[in-house]
Design a protein around this nucleic acid. Sequence first.
DNA 1: GGTGAAACATTAGACTC
DNA 2: GAGTCTAATGTTTCACC
Lengths: 157, 157
Amino acid sequence: MEEIDRRIVTLLADDGRMSFTDLARETGLSVSAVHQRVRRLEKRGVIRGYAALIDHDAIGLPLTAFVSIKPTDPSAPDDAPDRLAHLTEIEACYSVAGDESYILKVRVASPAALEDLLQRIRASAAVSTRTTVVLSIPYEHRPPGLAPEEKPEAEPA
Amino acid sequence: MEEIDRRIVTLLADDGRMSFTDLARETGLSVSAVHQRVRRLEKRGVIRGYAALIDHDAIGLPLTAFVSIKPTDPSAPDDAPDRLAHLTEIEACYSVAGDESYILKVRVASPAALEDLLQRIRASAAVSTRTTVVLSIPYEHRPPGLAPEEKPEAEPA
DNA sequence: GGTGAAACATTAGACTC
DNA sequence: GAGTCTAATGTTTCACC
């Protein structure tokens, strides 16, 4: 991916509703050239989608936590992500190296709701949990700082 | 916040570029009524912004990790988030309860880049680090599942 | 708050270089 | 790939409930 695509991605990561007109001005391309590139980036999966960033306090989910999970039976097949997917409080699921197998990021209304969620996680996926409560969020969702150049592989001539 | 606003927030959290026309159809309101509500939600900070969701593999930052940090001198003033803000590899910073004081979510190009970043984190904020490498991401950025009703406080008549 | 309609801006696609 | 052109859509504002 080259310079201009990278610039487009950076701009959209920061403002997902930026118009093609503005993107064109920022990149020095014509509107339709930008339009074409954005569609291509979407099709290739570089841009996976667009989201509004929501204030979780305002929608009644003020409590964020990280829940690390470990299977109670390490020899059982590990399909925890599938088994947990129906729990809408889980915003993200990361498979990790280390003592535990996954880290979940969850958003709930209250400590009581967290307790209830933890029980549903343990029951759904046959796992033990270790929970780290988030006290405040200095920042989140910062756009990727893309380096000016990345040559992951040289093209053999 | 009531029913229709909640629906608008849910729809935009899932597709940040949905048009007002589509939002109007989904909510049963007129286009201008929806427009007004979205502007109000933005102004009140319920919608904090819009972002394109990027495939980090595609932009050359395939390695994600969680870095827990702890001050080397617990009596020093804690301004780690400010001191680390210039490091663009840090996507998010959470203040947490527990043994460590913050969890950082970082995205880098390679193990070598991670090693380098950890050194810069330690040097910038006078902290020790504990790093958990992410192996894969079953899911991430799922939209908040908003309950049909939330009455955080009853209105005294 | 809500509506409908007019003025304006953006987007999508066909076509050319 | 990028540019221009144009028809179709989408956005914004405003006067009126």
